[in-house]
């Protein structure tokens, strides 16, 4: 052990990554440390490694996604894995088939890791109970999106040098957001002060119980924030059901320079993408020097590499026993 090749030990006693609430603070920190090194390696000319050589990863996306799917694909390939993309949202593979049958079918192909996105909360966990391989949650309904929260935490840590003690304001559709739920959890575990800002129609009941201060007035909620994280508002929610119109939403809850002035002068601006410019964020703010939206995408690959590496240690015949 004394001659371990890793400079710091990776703490990750999990076969799957299903939800942020299964991770402890030290585990999160060790993933971020590993991802931090990956980020530096990724900027070199030959970032490719062979940690996952001979391993098979299936990207199983029941909901279409461009950035998360390609981010996982790239992360896996950089680590030497074979990647198969199954875009179930557009394929006929699961016609009439239940989620569990799909899981059994894929399991029979003996993959090592399945990355799953599904529109129903809890679907990824259900699937994980039926397969022999590792399962990584790439978003299940309005429940969890743990790798997004990890990459957000890493982005904040690199921009600010720390997460602990920072005021992070998460603004937008909290009610339907898996990104918000994962982030509130992980940022709290890292010692940040989390605020959530939304109209009451886009907040779950008893929102304060999630571990955040609740604001329905954005000008107040953003005051003194170190980080302003905007969430995507889906178009079908701006038609008078949850919010009267995109115009009204932008006026009261969109991030523009006027509201941004209330935040700390060096506040960073984040968005998990894809952005609706002019709905939740003004174009000029999205392109502002304080925006770290593109860094978030970059950290996405680094964090997903770290997560894959971490779960790979628990794979059958895993090389973590070396």
């Amino acid at each position: 052990m004394a001659a371990a090749p890793e400079p710091q030990p990776l703490v990750f006693p999990h076969r799957h990554l299903l939800s942020s609430d299964k991770l402890t603070g030290p585990e999160i920190v060790s993933i971020l440390d590993l991802a931090d090194r990956n980020a530096d390696t990724n900027r070199q000319r030959t970032p490719k490694r062979d940690v996952l050589a001979g391993r098979t990863l299936i990207n199983l996306f029941f909901e279409s996604s461009t950035r998360t799917q390609s981010s996982f694909e790239l992360a896996a390939k950089r680590l030497g894995a074979d990647v198969m993309n199954m875009n179930v949202a557009t394929s006929s593979l699961t016609k009439g088939e239940t989620l569990i049958d799909t899981a059994m079918t894929l399991n029979a192909m003996r993959p090592d890791i399945i990355v799953v996105r599904h529109h129903a909360a809890g679907a990824v966990e259900l699937l994980s109970q039926k397969v022999d391989c590792s399962v990584i949650n790439a978003g299940d309904g309005a429940h969890q999106h743990p790798t997004q929260a990890l990459l957000d935490a890493l982005t904040i840590r690199r921009a600010k040098g720390r997460v602990s003690g920072l005021v992070v304001a998460i603004c937008g559709d909290i009610l339907h957001s898996r990104v918000a739920r994962s982030n509130i959890d992980i940022l709290n575990k890292l010692g940040a002060r989390v605020r959530i800002i939304a109209p009451s129609t886009l907040l779950p009941p008893s929102p304060e119980r999630l571990g955040a201060e609740v604001y329905t007035d954005m000008w107040k909620g953003i005051e003194g924030a170190d980080v302003v994280m905007m969430l995507r508002l889906q178009r079908e929610r701006m038609d008078g059901s949850y919010v009267p119109s995109s115009r009204e939403f932008f006026h009261f809850f969109g991030l523009d320079h006027d509201k941004l002035q209330k935040a700390k002068p060096d506040a960073v601006i984040m968005h998990p993408g894809p952005m609706n410019r002019g709905v939740e964020i003004a174009s000029t703010v999205a392109d502002d020097a304080r925006s770290v939206i593109r860094e978030q995408v970059e950290m996405g690959v680094a964090v997903r590499m770290a997560v894959l590496e971490a779960v790979a240690r628990h794979l059958r015949d895993g090389d973590d026993k070396a």
Binding site: D239, G240, S241, P244, S245, E248, H251
Partner: peptide
């Protein structure tokens, strides 16, 4: 909107 009882108007604005 239109007093149809379906979609909220821009109450804030």
């Amino acid at each position: 909107r239109g007093l149809k009882g379906e979609e909220m108007t821009e109450i804030g604005l």
